[in-house]
């Protein structure tokens, strides 16, 4: 499907979500509550069949924390972006999608490590790179006076 077809299909299928055409891909933003169900649908629906999660990024949007999922369908070769945000900055939590795409399990661990986003129902949520004593360095409010030299 082209981006436009994809956009119209998604709009009619997911009425709750906020769908727009980004710079390259169709972007769909869902609420934290609808995330897991949407992810399942995106993978299961024959016309979509987004079975390949190629990138999972945690982003600190200052006022809220978000996860960006880049999805591709191996069969149809179309790409879309799924976003989920949570306004809770103190203990942000989203549902895991690692049961939908296995690779998300590890990317979520990375996001948890670097941004401190907790994933509900994740089977093995440990820090990926850093020691437990570290903060979450990719958060915008992260300060480290010793190791970061501002210029």
């Amino acid at each position: 499907m082209t981006n436009e077809e994809l956009q119209s299909y998604l709009t009619e299928r997911f009425t709750e979500a906020e769908i727009k055409l980004g710079t390259q891909y169709v972007e769909m933003t869902v609420t934290a509550a609808a995330l897991h169900e949407t992810a399942l649908q995106l993978k299961k629906l024959d016309k979509l069949s987004f079975d390949y999660l190629f990138c999972l990024t945690g982003v600190d949007y200052a006022e809220n924390m978000g996860i960006v999922y880049h999805l591709e369908s191996v069969e149809h070769r179309h790409v879309m972006v799924l976003k989920a945000k949570t306004a809770d900055r103190v203990s942000p939590a989203l549902d895991t999608v690692s049961d939908v795409w296995i690779t998300a399990k590890y990317h979520e661990r990375e996001a948890y490590d670097l941004l401190g986003i907790h994933f509900n129902n994740h089977t093995d949520l440990r820090r990926m790179f850093l020691d437990d004593s570290w903060g979450h360095p990719l958060r915008k409010d992260y300060v480290d006076e010793v190791r970061i030299v501002e210029r």
Binding site: G22, Q24, Y25, E27, F54, H70
Partner: peptide, 18 residues
């Protein structure tokens, strides 16, 4: 302002910049 993604094929797989 916006989001940009580029995928290339590196020697050991898909390399992406977001």
């Amino acid at each position: 302002e916006g989001e940009f993604y580029q995928r290339v094929e590196s020697a050991r797989g898909e390399f992406g910049v977001y």
